Deep mutational scan, measured.
Amino acid sequence: MGFKLLSKLLVYLTASIMAIASPLAFSVDSSGEYPTVSEIPVGEVRLYQIADGVWSHIATQSFDGAVYPSNGLIVRDGDELLLIDTAWGAKNTAALLAEIEKQIGLPVTRAVSTHFHDDRVGGVDVLRAAGVATYASPSTRRLAEVEGNEIPTHSLEGLSSSGDAVRFGPVELFYPGAAHSTDNLIVYVPSASVLYGGCAIYELSRTSAGNVADADLAEWPTSIERIQQHYPEAQFVIPGHGLPGGLDLLKHTTNVVKAHTNRSVVE
């Protein structure tokens, strides 16, 4: 069995187990497998329904001669939608809004960016022009300005110390501490036991640490421990890039980060 097929099978099995364990909360999309990078042309966006009122959005972007996937989250909030992270750029984010209108038909009224990198804030200006209120932590807003990236308009308070959590509509926002970046936030959907790890969490097929220019490698494993301790009931975990899975993604990420750190020390 090929690795790609095995990865998709694991996603399907995880979703099936969740649907059985929580039949009222989960209505997993039966329309197909989780979209992969090879299936999404740059400039297009796919939506994948995880649970009743919960979707991931998947886009792709060219970077350094390669094409990478990027995940975000959409959560229903009454007759409105909360968006977590842009679709990595203005063109993708405009396509995301169009796809949401086509498939869901509810307005996106608020959006949260989970850290300051372009795959999370690139497209904020498109959201703002569409009347979406954009939010991020003060740290993310400051770092985005320093980096020359787009800056969300509103500040999220109460997320300055490791372990801080605040309720934001249908989700809980959690600051686990520094990891992929010093400002990275985690998003949890309690009604569906869905954990969105953003770039602080890796997919299972990833074996290298990737972009760690703004990471705190020493603190990252401790931050992941905080996530595990705060959300032990999480059933569906979405990484910032690639295929979702279960809580095993947290341990896998820790292993990859520690291996990278150990290699760096040896070198």
Rank of each mutant, 00 (worst) to 15 (best):
Asp85Arg: 00
Ser193Cys: 05
Ser181Leu: 02
Gly240Thr: 01
Glu80Leu: 05
Tyr175Met: 06
Val265Gln: 12
Arg263Glu: 14
Glu44Val: 10
Pro232His: 13
Ala21Gln: 14
Ser162Gln: 13
Ala25Gln: 15
Asp64Phe: 14
Ser38Met: 09
Glu147Ile: 10
Val37Asn: 15
Asp248Pro: 10
Ser208His: 09
Thr261Gln: 10
Val187Phe: 03
Ile74Asn: 04
Leu106Ser: 10
Ser162Val: 11
Asn255Phe: 10
Leu243Glu: 15
Ser70Trp: 00
Ser56Met: 15
Val256Glu: 03
Arg120Gln: 01
Leu47Gly: 03
Glu225Pro: 02
Gly65Arg: 08
Gln61Ser: 08
Asn255His: 13
Glu39His: 10
Thr86Ile: 05
Leu97Pro: 03
Gln228Val: 12
Ile84Leu: 13
Met1Trp: 02
Gln49Glu: 11
Asp216Lys: 08
Val266Ser: 13
Ser161Val: 14
Val187Ala: 11
Lys102His: 15
Ile74Asp: 01
Trp55Glu: 00
Asp118Trp: 04
Arg142Lys: 14
Ile17Val: 10
Lys91Asn: 14
Glu99Ala: 14
Gly131Ser: 09
Lys258Glu: 13
Val45Gly: 03
Ala179His: 05
His115Cys: 00
Ile100Gln: 03
Arg206Lys: 15
Val187Asn: 03
Val108Asp: 03
Phe174Leu: 09
Gly245Ser: 06
His241Lys: 00
Ala90Asn: 08
Thr109Glu: 07
Ala209Asn: 14
Gly242Ile: 03
Gly169Asn: 04
Ser113Lys: 01
Ala95Lys: 14
Ile227Glu: 01
Pro23Lys: 10
Thr254Leu: 13
Thr140Trp: 02
Ala130Lys: 12
Glu157Tyr: 14
Ala87Gln: 00
Ser193Phe: 13
Glu99Cys: 06
Lys91Asp: 15
Thr86His: 00
Asp183Cys: 00
Phe3Thr: 07
Ala94Ser: 14
Met18Phe: 12
Pro239His: 00
Gly105Cys: 05
Glu145Lys: 14
Val121Cys: 00
Arg120Thr: 00
Gly198His: 04
Pro170Gln: 09
Glu219Ser: 11
Leu156Val: 08
Pro190Leu: 08
Phe168Pro: 04
Ala87Glu: 00
Glu101Asn: 12
Ile50Lys: 02
Ser191Val: 09
Arg206Leu: 15
Ile84His: 00
Ser162Asn: 09
Met1Cys: 03
Ile40Ala: 15
Lys8Gln: 09
Glu33Leu: 08
Pro239Lys: 01
Ser31Cys: 06
Asp29Phe: 07
Arg128Ala: 12
Val265Phe: 08
His252Ile: 02
Pro107Glu: 12
